[in-house]
Write a protein that binds this DNA or RNA. Sequence first.
DNA 1: CGACAGGTTGAAAACTATCAAACATTGTGG
DNA 2: CCACAATGTTTGATAGTTTTCAACCTGTCG
Lengths: 238, 238
Amino acid sequence: MAPPLDPAVLRGMPLFAGLDADAMAEAVALARPRRHARGAAVFTQGEAAAAGHALIDGRVKIVQTGPDGQQVVMRFIGPGEMFGTLAIFTDGLYPADAVAVADSVELSWPAAAMTDLMERHPVIVRNALSIVGGRLREVQHRLREVATERVERRVAHALLRLVRQAGRRVETGVEIDFPLSRQDVAEMTGTTLHTVSRTLSAWESQGIVESGRQQVVIRKPHALVAIAEDLPPLRSGD
Amino acid sequence: MAPPLDPAVLRGMPLFAGLDADAMAEAVALARPRRHARGAAVFTQGEAAAAGHALIDGRVKIVQTGPDGQQVVMRFIGPGEMFGTLAIFTDGLYPADAVAVADSVELSWPAAAMTDLMERHPVIVRNALSIVGGRLREVQHRLREVATERVERRVAHALLRLVRQAGRRVETGVEIDFPLSRQDVAEMTGTTLHTVSRTLSAWESQGIVESGRQQVVIRKPHALVAIAEDLPPLRSGD
DNA sequence: CGACAGGTTGAAAACTATCAAACATTGTGG
DNA sequence: CCACAATGTTTGATAGTTTTCAACCTGTCG
């Protein structure tokens, strides 16, 4: 029933780095592919977890919801990235929602399969450790940002991160390559969509960004860096 | 030169869970013990890292410093906990300062020794993965708090976490068992020492806490939980 | 005893959230 | 194809938190 999968999809995935071709094939064979239309949930907070997901194509948003319904966007996942793996190492429940923000294709491994793979190929465990370690660092960095910086700088940082992760050159600058609402940015930075809107409006009038409905183009990345780093604003034209 | 170390110090350390006695002894033999007086730095942000530290006794504060000097307390380490291990899995530099807030005794493993241990005893890698995974979850939780809750609730949460981690029963309630300044609490919660001081003063006048110089006793944990969870304040005397 | 680190408190200023209303764009069903 | 609902965005006004600035207090330690 399963459509034939090209083992090459795992190439370049950090989790499987260092595996030989046979092991890759084995890993692919154990994975279950799925499609998710834009807006669909890949999994839901609190649900019992599969053991791991890898995004092949599209974009997925990881959102954590608090007891009072407040939402925080933990991160956006792009092609080649793993997600939803944290549950395996803890209580087996997803700690957040994953929602496709663009039409997406994803692979997932049942818990037993992943455990098995890890046992047979210890390098996967090492890889996982380094991935989770890197992510811990990232989140600590964001925690510091949210705890110490004001909204404008946080929004600048968030956009710069998105540019790095999903930036695409266009004529007028660099575009963030998936639908991104003001609300999304607000939930990434711990503020409200109103404040994000005002911030972007101000930047727009300074020619730093161009933005519209769920879409942002950075025209002067340099200026955004200056804001993020709290440097004196630049004079000249870039 | 090294004083003889009792292998039992590693008992109960999650990183070494599941190791047999021989392996434990091996691990202890490779560790280097050190004392740190209150206020001394165990290591410093940016410094090249040893591979791991374990606290035997005392209390250590992990503080990350931003480019403009803003500090954030990432966590407090108690006896039996590992710290400073994140560097191994990333770039080999400590991402934060570690400062002894009480006289402390610590073990550390040179990078080569730890790598060696992990290679010989894969269960250590598994343990590390689960520890780092758990910590990632914790930090994500705090990120949500800082991003969505107001100061009073954040301070309540922070104190409750400290009570869980280092609470000691005393006549009037539960005391946080190490020196903790207003500034520390501020850096844990992303606010200023002034606001923390005002918050604690208010709670003191409601009989919820008793606090003095670098010392906090929670008299009504229940009331603090109510604040943290944003429940209606309690009437009766508990 | 004096210096100092830690703590408290008032007043003013700065941010940001909240409330409210209007506008724009997209997609859909008639 | 158009009207309209739904969603996303903008902006003004106001209110509320929290920071900032300043001054003062208190116990500790050398």
